[in-house]
Amino acid sequence: MLPSYLTLAAILFCIGLYGALAKRNAIIVLLSLELMLNAVNLNLIAFSKYGVVPSLTGQIFSVFTITVAAAEAAVAVAVLIALFRARGTVDVEHMNAMRR
């Protein structure tokens, strides 16, 4: 079963990657990032059951990842709101202050 889970995780990850790269709305980009993190979590938990050394560590790790992702989502949304207040847009194309 492991390859199926891994393949599914790979599909999710790549869809998330495409969304993170191609989408212009920052909220959607954030969502795509969450999708990628979820794909990683799926891998972790799949390995936790079907890996060479089955162990609960994988689940613990996924819990940690979820926590970090939640913190990241909170901060990111806060940043986006602040940015929107300053710039009036959440289009990533307009976030090009690094050029200057």
């Binding site: 492991l2 390859p3 891994l6 393949t7 790979a10 990850f13 790549c14 936790s48 059951k49 079907y50 890996g51 060479v52 050394v53 089955p54 162990s55 609960l56 560590t57 994988g58 689940q59």
Partner: peptide, 23 residues
């Protein structure tokens, strides 16, 4: 990734590690 998954020879599940096997 798909190529890597298909190529990898995944060994049989062995003895449980820390905390025991999830099942």
């Amino acid at each position: 990734l798909f190529y890597a998954i298909r190529q990898t020879d995944i060994p049989e599940t062995g003895a449980a590690g820390a905390g025991g096997a999830p099942g």
